[in-house]
């Protein structure tokens, strides 16, 4: 069964909304989630495939992109007994 992230060809997500002059990150915490993830993967706390898998199994379409990343990071850290 396809996972929730596999949306190609699906209907019902509404129109594409473009934000003009969008910054790279909308807030400091987004940049920190991004950097934290790279650092944890860089240090071998988990690997990139584990992270992708965690995003796919914990994500919600109701959450923002980096909220989903943060949830995945927390999940992996919990599962590996770090927090």
């Amino acid at each position: 069964m396809p996972r929730i992230n596999d949306v190609g060809g699906m209907d019902g997500f509404g129109p594409v909304v473009e934000e003009l002059d969008e910054p790279a990150f909308h807030a400091d915490w987004e940049a920190h989630v991004f950097a934290m993830n790279r650092a944890l993967i860089g240090r071998g706390v988990y690997n990139l495939d584990e992270f992708r898998d965690a995003v796919e199994r914990t994500m919600s379409h109701e959450s923002s992109y980096y909220e989903n990343w943060f949830r995945a990071i927390q999940t992996l850290l919990e599962e590996k007994g770090h927090v």
Partner: peptide, 28 residues
Amino acid sequence: MSDDHDDSPIAARVRELEAVLEEKGLLD
């Protein structure tokens, strides 16, 4: 980068996790 959302609950949770990881030596 904007600091607009830094009072938001998620920003606080990110800061908190970062602090915990730093304490454990997993982040700098």
